[in-house]
Amino acid sequence: MRGVKGLLWPVFLVARKDLLVEFRSREVVIGSAVFAVTLVVIFNFALNITPETVDILAPGVLWAAFSFAGVLAMSRAFVTEKDQGSLEGLLLTPVSRDSIYFGKMLALFIFMTAVEAALLPVFAVLFDFSAFSPTLVGAVLLATLGFAAVGTLFSAVAVNTRSREIMLPILFFPVVSPVIIGAVEATTGAIGAGVSAAGPGRWLQLMAVFDAVFLVLCPWLFSLIMEE
């Protein structure tokens, strides 16, 4: 009816509302960042990371930490909305369900990227690699976009089930396994430990394909299930 602006304006509104709520409550970003650091400490004990093995292990540890912290962040995306009833209020507004999906996804993407941006330098120091290679930044952005695309849909699904804390990771991890593989491989290439024959470019492409597919599929499915 109001064209592109009619679709984009509500996306911006929803995302900004989520950022404002997060700015006040601060439960998502700080919670998942602290959790990610905790995970790295645990992995350090579990894998006994030494200077000889750090290049091989660091990308895996990094992405295990990012993806677990991401699940923590995305599980909050709809839990608060659902529990205070505001999701229903949101769905009663005339904006398209796509806009609601993209608004929630954008906010989740920003939260996760903020956590990752804060932690990358910390990891770079701990594991002694350069955090500022374009490949690494590209890998982080593409992987986070894929996580957010699938995570927003699954979070909306899981929030309505009885054991939501269990359902979200069970549904999420198998589906995003290509992204995790791609992110780990691209990171390996980027921080120079590369046994990577094909180079990180191929992995960035794989993640870009994943993102493209699920950024089309997920909003469509979201709008179908939001009208029960």
Partner: peptide, 18 residues
């Protein structure tokens, strides 16, 4: 159906804009 962390005004403004 409200956002508990937004003020009365912000709640009304948000839904009005939507």
């Amino acid at each position: 159906m409200l956002y508990q962390d937004l003020t009365c005004r912000e709640n009304l403004t948000f839904f009005g804009r939507m």
